[in-house]
Amino acid sequence: MEHVKRWRRLNGKTINTPIEEEINRTLSLEYEMGHTVSVCIGTDSQVKGRVTEFATVIVFIRKGKGGFMYILNDSTTRKMSVKERMLVEVGKSIEVAYPLCHIFSRYNVHMEVHADINTNPNFKSNDALKEAMGYIMGMGFTFRAKPHAFASTSCANKIVH
């Protein structure tokens, strides 16, 4: 039996409709209220014993009026190297971003994919930088890495259990 992925808001409210419907509804409301929004999508992970836990976030930033986010938690028991885990994080972000990009285009919303990968070569995550950048940019998305990848390094980082 396949595990059903449940999105939620930061306040814990579960999203019971497909995320595409929720994002479309949200952007429609934001547009009606006259807000200019941009979106950042990112994933972070944490290894806890034999389990790797992931948190993917869709962060909405209202120009001059704060923001909010949607959250998806996931986990695996598959053992991975740091590089592989970084690329899995990027894959999870793209898996979320790709089916939403036509909705963002419809509302003229700028969207970025944030990777929790350090640009400093002294960090292990840097081994995945070139592949992650190529993957994200090859999909036509704007790429951000540390220290500019707040969706993954700050938002998702706080959510991963």
Rank of each mutant, 00 (worst) to 15 (best):
S105N: 14
F60G: 07
R62M: 11
A55M: 05
A145V: 03
M33W: 14
D74I: 00
K79P: 00
T17W: 03
K5G: 10
K92I: 03
G67L: 08
I159K: 13
V39Y: 06
E131G: 00
N126E: 03
I117F: 12
T77F: 09
G91Q: 05
H110D: 04
V47K: 15
G140K: 09
M139I: 00
K146T: 01
F150E: 07
E21R: 12
F143E: 00
F54Q: 04
S93E: 01
A156M: 07
D44G: 08
R62A: 03
T14M: 04
E32H: 12
G42K: 05
V82N: 11
Y135W: 14
K158I: 02
S152K: 06
G34C: 12
G134D: 11
S152F: 05
V90H: 05
G140P: 13
G64T: 04
I58C: 06
M139C: 09
T77G: 03
F143I: 07
M1S: 11
R9K: 15
Y70P: 13
T14S: 06
H102F: 09
A149W: 08
P121L: 01
N120P: 06
N11Y: 10
T14H: 07
A151T: 09
G91Y: 02
A151F: 10
T26D: 02
E112Y: 12
G134S: 11
G91S: 15
E89M: 07
R106A: 09
L100T: 10
N16P: 00
D74G: 06
I117E: 04
T56D: 03
R144H: 11
A145K: 03
P121F: 06
S28E: 11
F141I: 02
N157D: 13
V160R: 13
R9Y: 14
P147H: 05
F68M: 08
E112A: 14
H114R: 05
D116N: 14
S45Y: 08
S45N: 13
S154G: 00
Y135V: 12
T43S: 13
M139D: 04
P99I: 01
D127N: 10
F143P: 02
E2N: 10
L72V: 04
H114W: 15
H110N: 11
D116P: 06
N157P: 00
P147K: 06
N11R: 13
V113Q: 00
K130W: 07
T43M: 04
A97D: 01
R62W: 05
K158C: 04
I61R: 15
I23H: 02
L10K: 15
M86S: 14
F60I: 14
M1C: 01
F68W: 15
F123V: 10
E53V: 08
A115K: 09
G140Y: 13
E22L: 04
S28C: 08
I117K: 03
V39K: 03
G138K: 06
E20I: 05
G64S: 06
A128Q: 10
K5H: 12
R6P: 00
V160Q: 07
M1P: 02
M33Q: 15
